[in-house]
Computed example of a mutant assay.
Amino acid sequence: MDQPVRTPDSAFRAIKAIDYTVIHVRDLAAMRRFYEDVLGFDVIRELSPRWIEYRVGANTLALAIPGLTAKDVPLPPGSAALQLAFKVATHEVDACADELRRQGVALVMPPTDQPFGHRTLFFRDPDGNLLEIYADIPPKGGADM
């Protein structure tokens, strides 16, 4: 299959960052409780009963019920729609793990030093999406990711 050729004058070169990410949810109430009460994200606006936005650093994370803009059907249970990674300082990875455990959130993987230079922690939100808290650490033995 031929690869498309990106030209230097492409209009898409104007894209410099991801401005917001939308998670299409199965259960908006459960997801809202998780992102607000467990992760402590502040609502920046609620555009409708089907769309809630949070500020995460310089980005916006939105929770939305599918079908608002496109007629996609919800993902089947047991299927992750995405993985989000949240960067913190090294000592905060373990603090986040402790807080998740205190709040009854099961860890998929406890804090672990990875050979590619991250200390990672994995868990899931109520819809089963994979979430990661990570920090940069010196790589072990110079391994590549």
Rank of each mutant, 00 (worst) to 15 (best):
V22T: 15
V22S: 15
V22E: 15
I23D: 08
I23N: 11
I23R: 11
H24W: 10
L28V: 09
L28A: 14
A30C: 11
A30T: 05
M31W: 12
M31T: 15
R32N: 15
R33D: 12
F34I: 04
F34N: 07
F34P: 06
Y35Q: 13
Y35K: 13
Y35V: 12
E36G: 07
D37T: 07
L39T: 08
L39S: 08
G40T: 01
G40N: 00
F41M: 06
D42W: 01
D42Q: 07
D42A: 06
V43I: 07
V43D: 04
V43W: 05
V43H: 06
I44R: 07
I44P: 11
R45G: 04
R45D: 06
E46T: 11
S48W: 02
S48F: 03
S48E: 02
P49L: 00
R50G: 11
R50A: 13
R50D: 13
R50W: 06
I52F: 14
I52A: 12
E53I: 00
Y54W: 06
Y54D: 06
Y54G: 09
Y54T: 02
Y54P: 10
A58K: 09
A58Y: 02
A58F: 01
T60S: 10
T60K: 07
L61P: 12
L63H: 12
L63F: 12
A64Q: 15
I65F: 08
I65V: 14
I65W: 08
P66L: 04
P66I: 04
P66K: 13
G67M: 03
L68D: 11
T69G: 14
K71I: 01
K71G: 10
K71Q: 14
D72S: 13
D72M: 11
V73R: 06
P74L: 01
P74G: 03
L75N: 13
L75M: 09
L75K: 12
L75R: 15
L75H: 12
P76G: 07
P77G: 03
P77K: 05
P77F: 00
G78W: 01
S79T: 14
A80D: 14
A80I: 05
L82Y: 14
L82C: 15
Q83R: 15
L84Y: 12
A85E: 10
F86N: 11
F86K: 10
K87L: 10
T90W: 00
V93P: 02
V93C: 01
D94S: 04
A95M: 00
A95W: 00
A95Q: 02
